[in-house]
Measured scan of single mutants.
Amino acid sequence: ENVVSAPMPGKVLRVLVRVGDRVRVGQGLLVLEAMKMENEIPSPRDGVVKRILVKEGEIVDTGQPKIELG
């Protein structure tokens, strides 16, 4: 899985990584606000952040790609 998608609709509060960052499985990639709760979205695997496809403040839909890992 190279693309991390939104598990639920919500607002991107914070992006916790930058392009080029090495990430580990379970590491937080971003914080999504859904139903007035903050949810940290974890990396599904070890890898390197290739692209960030969302911006802080953006509203995302379920299944929308957010971060691409290499």
Rank of each mutant, 00 (worst) to 15 (best):
G20I: 05
V12Q: 01
N39P: 03
E58L: 04
L13K: 11
G26Y: 05
V23D: 02
E38A: 10
G63R: 07
V17I: 08
R24T: 13
R45K: 11
G63F: 09
Q64N: 06
M8E: 05
V19E: 11
G57E: 05
K50P: 00
G57A: 04
V19W: 04
K66R: 04
S5Y: 15
E68W: 11
I67A: 02
M37K: 13
E1N: 13
L30E: 01
K55E: 11
S5P: 07
R22A: 12
N39S: 12
P7K: 13
V25P: 08
M8A: 09
V54M: 01
Q27I: 06
P9L: 07
V60L: 07
G28P: 15
V4A: 05
I52T: 01
L13D: 06
I59E: 11
V12H: 02
M37Q: 13
R24I: 12
V48L: 09
G63A: 08
E58D: 15
I67V: 10
N39G: 06
D61W: 12
V54I: 10
V31C: 06
R14M: 06
E33D: 08
G63Y: 08
K36G: 15
D46I: 06
L32M: 11
D21R: 01
P65E: 07
L32H: 00
G70S: 13
S5A: 11
L13M: 07
R24L: 11
L53P: 00
I67L: 09
K11C: 09
L32W: 06
V49R: 01
V12F: 00
V17Q: 01
V25G: 08
I52C: 04
L53M: 13
P65L: 10
V25M: 13
V17W: 00
V12S: 00
V17G: 00
Q64K: 06
L13R: 04
L53A: 03
D46L: 05
V3T: 11
I67K: 01
K50W: 06
E33F: 13
E40L: 15
S5T: 13
K50Y: 07
P44G: 04
P7T: 13
G26A: 05
V49H: 00
G70Q: 13
L29Q: 01
E68H: 10
R22S: 12
R18M: 10
G63M: 08
R22E: 11
S43I: 02
E1H: 13
D46P: 07
G20W: 03
P44W: 07
G47K: 01
G63E: 06
V12A: 00
G28D: 04
V23H: 01
L32V: 10
N2G: 11
G26E: 03
E56A: 12
L16Q: 04
S5N: 10
K11E: 04
V49A: 02
M8N: 07
P7D: 11
G10V: 06
R14W: 01
K66L: 15
A34W: 15
L16H: 04
I59L: 13
E33L: 15
Q27N: 04
V12P: 01
